[in-house]
Design a protein around this nucleic acid. Structure first.
Lengths: 143, 143
DNA sequence: GGGAGTTGTGGATAAATGTGGGGAAAAGTC
DNA sequence: GACTTTTCCCCACATTTATCCACAACTCCC
C-alpha cells in the first residue's frame, strides 16, 4: 500500500526518483500511464498486467471502447527503475501532465500518482474548497 | 506486450523504423495491414496467423463483418524487418492511412499501430473530448 | 554526537538507436 | 538487348539512451 506525499525533481534527462519507501512494493519493473485530472499513474508491472488484460478484451468493433483502450494502452510505458530507483518519463507523458521540474509523488493505496507541483497545489486547494459538499456525499457512501 | 507512443519518420524509400523496444517481441517476420480508423496494424507473424484464422471464420452472411475481414486480409503484406529494424510500407497502405513523413507508432497490447502524426493528434483529442466520463469506465475495470 | 549507511541530484562515458545515402542485384520497359 | 526503375543490402554519422560513478544532504544507530 502506497501512502504519503513527496516532492522530487525531474532532471534534464527526464529522470525522476521514486520514493525509497515505495521501491520494494513497486519492484524493478513498473508502468506509467495517463491518469485522471492531468496526472500520471504509476503501477507495478504485475498490477498493470491485470488492467491491460481487461483493456485488451474490450470489443474492437465499438468505436468508443476501441478509442478508450487505445488511449490507455498506447499511453502506457514501461518504466523500469534504474539502480538508484529512478524512472524515465517519456516526453509525451511529461507533456500530458505538463510536468515541470518540480513534481509531487503521491501514494494512493494501490497506485502512485505523479503531479506537477503547481497543478497539485491548485488541485488540492480546489478540493479543499469543495470539501463541505463532499462530506455530504461521503455520508451517502457510508464513510 | 506492446506499450507506448513513439514518433518516427518515413524516408523517401518508404522505410519506417520500428521502436527498438518492440523488435524482440515482434521478431524478424511481421505483417502490416489496414487497420481501423485509418491507421495500419502491425502484427508479429505468429499473432497474425491467429487473427487471420479468426477473420476467416467471421459469418459470411453479415455484410459489414465480411467487408472488415476482406479489408484486413486483402490488405495484409509481409513486412520483414531489415538489419536495422525497419520495415517497408507499401504504397497502397501509405495511401490508406494517408501517411506523411512524420508518423506515430503506438503499442496497443498485442498489436502495433502506425498513424500519420496529424491524424493521431486529431484522433486523440477527439477521443479525450468524447470520453468525459473516463473515470466511470476506469471504475468499471477496477482501476 | 560521530560515523556508517542511505537517499536525492547531477554529470561523464560508452553503447545503442534513428536517419540518410550509396551501390549492387532484380524487375520491368521500350 | 539496352536502358531505366525499383528493391534490397551495406555502411556512416549524429543524436539519443543507458550505465556507471561522484558528491552532498540526510537519517539512523550505537
Amino acid at each position: 500500500m502506497f501512502l504519503g506525499e513527496f516532492s522530487y525533481s525531474i532532471d534534464e534527462k527526464k529522470r525522476l526518483a521514486i520514493p525509497a519507501k515505495f521501491r520494494q512494493a513497486l519492484g524493478k519493473k513498473a508502468v506509467v500511464t495517463r491518469g485522471l485530472d492531468q496526472c500520471l499513474f504509476l503501477y507495478s508491472f504485475k498490477e498493470w498486467g491485470v488492467l491491460a488484460e481487461k483493456l485488451s478484451k474490450l470489443p474492437l468493433a465499438q468505436a468508443d471502447a476501441r478509442g478508450f483502450a487505445r488511449l490507455m494502452l498506447a499511453g502506457a510505458m514501461e518504466a523500469d527503475l534504474d539502480k538508484l530507483g529512478r524512472i524515465l518519463v517519456p516526453d509525451y507523458l511529461k507533456e500530458y501532465a505538463s510536468l515541470g521540474k518540480k513534481t509531487v509523488i503521491a501514494g494512493v493505496y494501490n497506485r502512485i500518482e505523479i503531479w506537477d507541483e503547481q497543478k497539485w497545489e491548485a488541485y488540492k486547494t480546489n478540493i479543499e474548497k469543495g470539501i463541505g459538499d463532499m462530506a455530504e456525499r461521503l455520508k451517502e457512501l457510508g464513510i
